[in-house]
C-alpha cells in the first residue's frame, strides 16, 4: 500500500467518523471562575483545548467570519479578541466597566455590550476598535439581543425590570417595556416578530411583539417535585427552521421545550445543574447548554428532544457559542 493510499484511507475514515457527513462543529465555552475558554468538538464532545484568557470571562460571541471570538473579560473591564487559529489574544476592545455580555449586530461590525455597573449599553465598532455610542438604560443591564434583521437591539435591566428597545440606526432608546422581575436574557424569534425575555425571579418568559412593543404572552413553568421558586428561566434559543424554542431553567436543572406557535411547554429535559446559556450547532441539529455548578455542557439532540451527553468544562461554564 503506497503512501497515497494510506492518506486516502485516513481521509475516508475521518469522514466516516462524522455522522451523516456533517461538517465539524466546534463549541466554545467561557469558564467564569477559571479564566479560560474550553474548546470542545461539537459531535464527540471531546475536549480539544483549553485557552487561558482574561479575568472572569462571561459573554462570548464568534465574529461574523468565525475566525475570532469576542470575550467579555468582566473583571479586566475589557473585551478580548481571540484569534481561533493561533489561540492567542490579538487585541482588546474598549468595553466600558464590567462588561457582562453582548450581542453582535448581523452586519458583523457593531457589538452591543451591557455595562452592569454603569447602567449603560456601549456600542463598539469592532473594525475601528472604538466605542461609538453609550446608551443609558436601567439599573444593571444584563441581556442583550439583536433582531435578526438588525433593526433592533434590546437590553434588559435586572433591577429596573425593563426591556429597553434601541433603534440600531440611531442608537437611541425608542421604548422601555416593563417586564417581570429580573430579566436576564432576550432572544428574538428568527423572523424578528417577537422578542422573548426571561424573567429569572418572576419565573416567566415575557413574549413581546416587535411591532407594538406590548407583552403578548407570559409563559410559565411547572415541573412536579420542583419548588416553583426554583423555576428560573434564563437562556433562550429559538430553532431557526423548526417548531421549538428552548428555555434554560437555571437551578431547576431543566431545559423547557416550548411550541413557538402555541407557547405551550412540550417537554422538560433534565440537564446539568444551574443551566444557564444555550447555543445551537450551525446546522441546528444540536443544542448545547452551559451548566454553571456541575461544570459541564449538556448536548441535546434537537430532533429527538433527548439529552445525549454531558461533557466536562472548566469551573462555572457561562457563555457559549458554536462555530464550524
Amino acid at each position: 500500500m503506497g503512501t497515497r493510499q494510506i492518506f486516502r484511507n485516513t481521509v475516508l475514515a475521518f469522514l466516516l467518523a462524522l455522522p451523516n457527513g456533517a461538517l465539524a462543529t466546534t463549541v466554545y465555552v467561557s469558564n467564569e471562575k477559571d479564566n479560560t475558554i474550553t474548546v470542545l468538538d461539537g459531535q464527540s464532545g471531546e475536549l480539544k483545548k483549553t485557552i487561558s484568557v482574561g479575568q472572569r470571562p462571561r459573554g462570548i460571541v464568534l465574529s461574523a467570519d468565525r475566525k475570532a471570538l469576542y470575550i467579555c473579560a468582566s473583571d479586566d473591564d475589557t473585551i478580548q479578541v481571540l484569534d481561533l487559529k493561533t489561540a492567542k489574544i490579538t487585541h482588546t476592545l474598549p468595553s466600558g466597566d464590567d462588561p457582562e455580555t453582548f450581542a453582535l449586530h448581523p452586519n458583523g461590525r457593531f457589538l452591543y455590550v451591557s455595562n452592569e455597573d454603569d447602567n449603560l449599553v456601549t456600542v463598539i465598532d469592532v473594525e475601528k476598535r472604538e466605542a461609538v455610542a453609550e446608551i443609558p438604560v436601567g439599573v444593571e443591564p444584563e441581556g442583550i439581543g439583536i433582531s435578526p434583521d438588525g433593526k433592533w437591539a434590546i437590553a434588559t435591566s435586572e433591577t429596573t425590570n425593563m426591556a429597553h428597545w434601541i433603534d440600531t440606526k440611531t442608537n437611541a432608546l425608542v421604548k422601555n417595556v416593563l417586564v417581570d422581575s429580573r430579566p436576564r436574557y432576550v432572544a428574538f424569534t428568527p423572523k424578528a416578530e417577537e422578542a422573548w425575555v426571561s424573567a429569572e425571579i418572576g419565573g416567566k418568559v415575557n413574549v413581546i411583539d416587535s411591532a407594538s412593543h406590548e407583552i403578548v404572552r407570559r409563559i410559565g413553568f411547572a415541573i412536579p417535585g420542583i419548588e416553583s421558586a426554583k423555576l428560573q428561566p434564563v437562556g433562550i434559543a429559538h430553532m431557526k427552521d423548526g417548531p421549538w424554542s428552548f428555555v434554560a431553567l437555571g437551578p431547576a436543572n431543566h431545559v423547557a421545550v416550548i411550541d413557538r406557535k402555541t407557547y405551550a411547554v412540550e417537554k422538560y429535559l433534565l440537564v446539568g445543574s444551574r443551566v444557564w446559556n444555550l447555543a445551537f450547532s450551525p446546522d441546528g441539529k444540536w443544542l448545547y447548554t452551559t451548566n454553571g455548578t456541575s461544570n459541564d455542557v449538556s448536548i441535546i439532540d434537537v430532533e429527538a428532544l433527548k439529552v445525549r451527553k454531558s461533557v466536562a468544562t472548566g469551573r462555572f461554564p457561562w457563555g457559549i457559542d458554536v462555530g464550524p
Binding site: T159, S181, R182, I201, G203, K230, Q232
Partner: peptide, 10 residues
Amino acid sequence: FALQGFKGQK
C-alpha cells in the same frame, strides 16, 4: 408584590 434581592428567589 415581589422584590428581587440578590438571594436567588423573590
